[in-house]
């Protein structure tokens, strides 16, 4: 038995496929690829498969993750190749890694996500939003009301923003935002409060959100850090305080 973690992209028209349908899509692709995946016991067995974090409909990504358990395989590379042959262009497996059998699910381990965000063509704000957003993000606190299962609660978004930088030429902002079981900041919420701070209306359909990668936590001699789930590049580590 082998436990595997796969990194995949979601691009093009596939961005309109909702999270549950992406899961169903993978279940079928795995059957088409004839991967010897492990099934649960019971009368209606299901594939042992879990996804790191849902991506909102309309957003693209180069860094989605799923974990699967197989009964047997030729190699991890073979699984990746066969899956890619059985799938549409919009979803590609770009990396695969074998996990320690005791490794927790990507869903549990995820700590943050890096995004590149701009506005869709025709939906760009009629003011210098990059300048204004830079001012907004530099505030001490960024209070917001977040919808929860039981209603709304007040949160401070500021500590959930690990990094940000701007690409003025492309009119994009790069954001590294908290995304874990205890704290998640969705880009749309941040933009909603940014627009609200300017007294402006905001419609999330204009946001062009691209997820670059999902990060997990770790620590070394320099302290606690977060880094992409599958990476060999130590320079991608982001050290976080506390």
């Amino acid at each position: 038995m082998n436990k595997l973690r796969l990194k995949f992209t979601k691009n093009g028209p596939i961005k309109f496929i909702g999270h549950l349908d992406v899961m169903r899509y993978f279940q079928k692709a795995i059957r088409r690829a004839e991967i010897d995946i492990k099934y649960s016991e019971g009368f209606s067995p299901h594939q042992i498969l879990s996804f790191a974090q849902p991506l909102s409909v309309g957003a693209t990504s180069d860094g989605e993750y799923l974990d699967m358990t197989v009964n047997s395989m030729v190699s991890a590379q073979d699984i990746m190749d066969r899956l890619n042959l059985a799938m549409n262009e919009g979803i590609r497996i770009t990396a695969i890694t074998e996990l320690d059998p005791k490794e927790e699910k990507a869903m549990t381990l995820s700590e943050a996500a890096r995004y590149s965000i701009g506005f869709r063509k025709g939906g760009e704000p009629d003011f210098d939003w990059i300048e204004a957003f830079s001012d907004y993000l530099s505030k001490e606190t960024l209070p917001a009301m977040k919808k929860t299962k039981s209603g709304e609660k007040e949160i401070d978004m500021k500590p959930m923003i690990f990094e940000y930088s701007f690409d003025k030429e492309k009119s994009k902002v790069s954001l590294l935002l908290a995304m874990s079981s205890s704290a998640t900041l969705k880009p749309a919420l941040l933009f909603e409060y940014f627009f609200r701070s300017l007294g402006r209306d905001f419609d999330p359909v204009h946001l062009d959100i691209h997820r670059i990668d999902i990060y997990r936590g770790g620590s070394d001699e320099k302290g606690a850090f977060i880094e992409p789930f599958i990476t060999d590049d130590i320079s991608e580590r982001v050290y976080i305080n506390g």
């Binding site: 309109f16 496929i17 909702g18 349908d21 409909v57 869709r120 939906g123 359909v205 204009h206």
Partner: peptide, 11 residues
């Protein structure tokens, strides 16, 4: 994209 995001089941 905006139209597809403003309706039910863009799929």
């Amino acid at each position: 994209d905006e139209m597809l995001l403003s309706i039910e089941k863009p799929e």
